[in-house]
Design a protein around this nucleic acid. Sequence first.
DNA 1: AACGGTGCTTGATCTGGATCAATAAAACAG
DNA 2: CTGTTTTATTGATCCAGATCAAGCACCGTT
Lengths: 231, 231
Amino acid sequence: MPESYKEDIRALKLFAEMEEANFDALMRGAYVQNFPPRIDLIHEKDRPDFLHVVLTGSVDLYSSWNGRESSMATVRPISTFILAATINNLPYLMSARTMERSRIVLLPSTDVRQVFSKDPAFARAIVTELAQCYRSVVKNTKDLKLRTSLERLANYILRQQARTGSTEFDLTMEKRRLASFLGMTPENLSRAFKGLEPYGVKVSSNHITIADPDDLARFAKPNPLIDDHTT
Amino acid sequence: MPESYKEDIRALKLFAEMEEANFDALMRGAYVQNFPPRIDLIHEKDRPDFLHVVLTGSVDLYSSWNGRESSMATVRPISTFILAATINNLPYLMSARTMERSRIVLLPSTDVRQVFSKDPAFARAIVTELAQCYRSVVKNTKDLKLRTSLERLANYILRQQARTGSTEFDLTMEKRRLASFLGMTPENLSRAFKGLEPYGVKVSSNHITIADPDDLARFAKPNPLIDDHTT
DNA sequence: AACGGTGCTTGATCTGGATCAATAAAACAG
DNA sequence: CTGTTTTATTGATCCAGATCAAGCACCGTT
């Protein structure tokens, strides 16, 4: 594996503090792979053979039941998925597919578990990471249970504004996937965008413009305990 | 603190493997408290002063936004809440109140974090615990996004059957709280119970009887990746 | 027993969002 | 480029579930 990839991975908080020797051991079994768009990487119920690290591109985590399907989260560079299954050696709860052309590192699960059990710094880093993941899912559940779909969309737009630091941005995923992620149908997302026009949200194709963020925020009532995914 | 409580706590997987000295240090700062029903223990947004351990009774974790409220989970003996906030020293995402008379141990967060950073066995146990918590919330999200309210209720009843090992049992919480937990209104829960009658579910007051579990399961289509909260 | 409070149920109505259907607009393959 | 497939939009309709409004059962208090 190219040295520069290793540096990218080592830069992650998760791997930053661990012992050099252990990191090397992890990297020895690792390999990189490039995937085209819409390729299934893992499938729920499978056993966690590898811990995945997204270097470029993006990955959609989704779940299915009884013929229905729902997008659960998007993984963007540089970060890992799905850590919890790997650590506890239990079946994946979600499937993963590339959203675009993506470069992904595969770390054998057995290696990860082995290093985890002998490197305290790595174990502690995993704790922090998992705690953050847990908190993100809780926030997402609050979003789903406490808000209407229009409110969820409004807050999603405000989060994107915060992320990009601009009142104008492009959607990072196709609308049907955004709809699924927000727990609604594509038709309804279309109408929801219309429903936010009175609050100054303009949509053309996948480009969003927010005329007056304060106006939108008065409607959306964003809350760090739901919308700030950094804490 | 009575010695027997310490033993109860030590019996938890979370504390079982840690060094004696560290466990003692944790227990030195700990104290037990008895709470009447419906007492608020912690409030979302507060800082995590204590890791809580429920010894007896039960605790409801709930969240609020914009005047709305929703039950997120129930904590039963013997287990801890809310670990993630304590470890990362970040504000609680959920509030907690006793559902009935409850005995609860309070462990100062600073002690927990201190022991966490010097006891590898404890750190590893926390990883396992957090990974499990994470997976539970993901399962809950799948339940919410992939199922109708009737299906959620049907699967909830089947989970209770599995938990109690009997086709007859009493609901462990009042119906209004169950409704909130399942993401519906009390009125709708009432009607949902009626809607399950054709599948052999009998309800009288808070007592549930399942005439034919297979019949109910054919409708509910339970799935371990959503309904088995032990893995 | 009478009282007031709270939670549960039931009916009537309303509405947010899903579904169905049709068209338009992209994205893609050959 | 052309035809094909997928996605997005829009309108019409439908339905699950929320809300509103009584009435009822239960429960602890006096």
